[in-house]
C-alpha cells in the first residue's frame, strides 16, 4: 500500500506551549482514517499542518508525496478540504457555488450530480442564507468533493446534522471511498468513526497515544465482556451460581464480568434450566463500546473528556 500521508516527529509549539509533541503516522492510499481526541488536544492543529494551512515547528510530513508547506495549486487540485467552519456564500445557491468551485479544478465531477449526491436536490436553487445548518454542512461537503480529489479532509462533517442527515453524509463518504480515495476524518462521534473508519488514532495532549482498527483499539477486542440478564420469577428466589467471574445483582439485574463469556453463558443456561427456566430473560453479552474505550483513555491521561475551548 502506498502512503497517502506520512508524518514523522511532527511538532508544533506556540511559545512554551506544545500543541503537538512529535506525531508519527502513516495513512495508506484508499484508507479512511479517523482522528479522535478531546477539544484542544491537537487534532485540528495536526490536520491543518497536513492541509498546508499551518507550518510545523519540527518534523517531516508528506501528503500525496508533497511537503504540505510547499504544496502549490497542482497539489491543491488533488485535495478536498471540508473545514470545520468557514465563511459562507449566503447570496449564492448550492448549484451556483458548486459549479463555481468546480471551475477551479482541472478535472471535476458534474456539479449538479454532486449537489444531488449530498442530498440537496430540492434546495439546489435556494439562496444559501435560507438553508439550515445541516444543509449548509452538505454544501461544505459538496465543495470538498466536486474537484474529484484523491484525498479528502473532513473536519467534523456531521456536526449539527440530524441522525438521518448523518447517515446520508456517511453514504456519500462511502461512495467516495469505494472509488479508492483516501479520507482523513476528525469527529466527536465515536459511532461515526466506527461506521466509516478503517483505522482510528487518538490524540491526547498533542500525542498520538493509540492507533488501531476501531474494533481493536485500546485492547477492546480482548477486553472483559459483560453478561447481563434479568432476575425475575423463579430466578429471583434462588441463589446465583458460581461461574468463575465476578457476579453482581442489583435492581433485578444480574451482571457478570468475564474474559470467557462463552463458557459463562453455557453455565448460566444450565443453571436456569435446572430451575425450570428455558430462556434467560433479557440476556445480553456486550463488549465495551469504542466510546467506553475512548473515554477510559482520556480519563487515564487525566484529561477532562470535554475540556478546553473549541
Amino acid at each position: 500500500m502506498t502512503a497517502a500521508i506520512t508524518a514523522t516527529g511532527v511538532r508544533k509549539s506556540y511559545g512554551s506551549f506544545e500543541a503537538l509533541r512529535g506525531v508519527d503516522l502513516e495513512i495508506g492510499e484508499g484508507e479512511v482514517f479517523a482522528l479522535l481526541g478531546p477539544n484542544g488536544a491537537g487534532k485540528t492543529t495536526f490536520v491543518e499542518i497536513l492541509e498546508g494551512f499551518r507550518t510545523r515547528t519540527a518534523g517531516e510530513a508528506t501528503v500525496l508525496g508533497i511537503d504540505p508547506e510547499r504544496g502549490g495549486p497542482e497539489w491543491r487540485a488533488r485535495l478536498g478540504i471540508v473545514l470545520q467552519s468557514a465563511g459562507f456564500f449566503e447570496q449564492l445557491t448550492p448549484d451556483e457555488i458548486t459549479a463555481h468551485f468546480a471551475s477551479f479544478y482541472p478535472k471535476h465531477l458534474d456539479p449538479r450530480r454532486v449537489v444531488d449526491m449530498v442530498g440537496l436536490a430540492e434546495k439546489r436553487d435556494a439562496r444559501c442564507k435560507s438553508l439550515s445548518g445541516g444543509q449548509k454542512r452538505r454544501v461544505d461537503l459538496a465543495l470538498g468533493i466536486v474537484g474529484d480529489p484523491d484525498l479528502v479532509f473532513l473536519d467534523e462533517p456531521t456536526t449539527g446534522l440530524d441522525p438521518q442527515g448523518r447517515r446520508q453524509i456517511w453514504e456519500v463518504v462511502r461512495e467516495f471511498t469505494s472509488l479508492g480515495k483516501t479520507v482523513v476524518l476528525t469527529t466527536h462521534y465515536l459511532d461515526e468513526a466506527e461506521q466509516l473508519a478503517d483505522r482510528v488514532g487518538v490524540i491526547i495532549r498533542g500525542e498520538l497515544v493509540e492507533v488501531g482498527r476501531p474494533r481493536e483499539i485500546g485492547g477492546r477486542e480482548r477486553a472483559m465482556a459483560r453478561i447481563s440478564f434479568s432476575l425475575n420469577g423463579t430466578l429471583s428466589e434462588v441463589a446465583l451460581p458460581e461461574v468463575g467471574g465476578l457476579i453482581d445483582a442489583a435492581d433485578g439485574v444480574a451482571t457478570v464480568t468475564t474474559d470467557r463469556p462463552t463458557a459463562v453463558v453455557a453455565m448460566l443456561a444450565r443453571w436456569a434450566e435446572d430451575h425450570g427456566v428455558a430462556e434467560l430473560p433479557g440476556l445480553a453479552v456486550s463488549r465495551p463500546s469504542l466510546e467506553d474505550i475512548y473515554l477510559a483513555m482520556v480519563a487515564e491521561a487525566g484529561e477532562p473528556s470535554d475540556g478546553g475551548q473549541l
Partner: peptide, 17 residues
C-alpha cells in the same frame, strides 16, 4: 469580512490562484 470569517481560507484550500 472574507478574511476574518474564513471565506478566504476556504478559497485558499482550492487550486484557485
Amino acid at each position: 469580512v472574507e478574511q476574518h470569517d474564513g471565506l478566504l481560507r476556504r478559497l485558499s484550500g482550492t487550486p484557485l490562484p
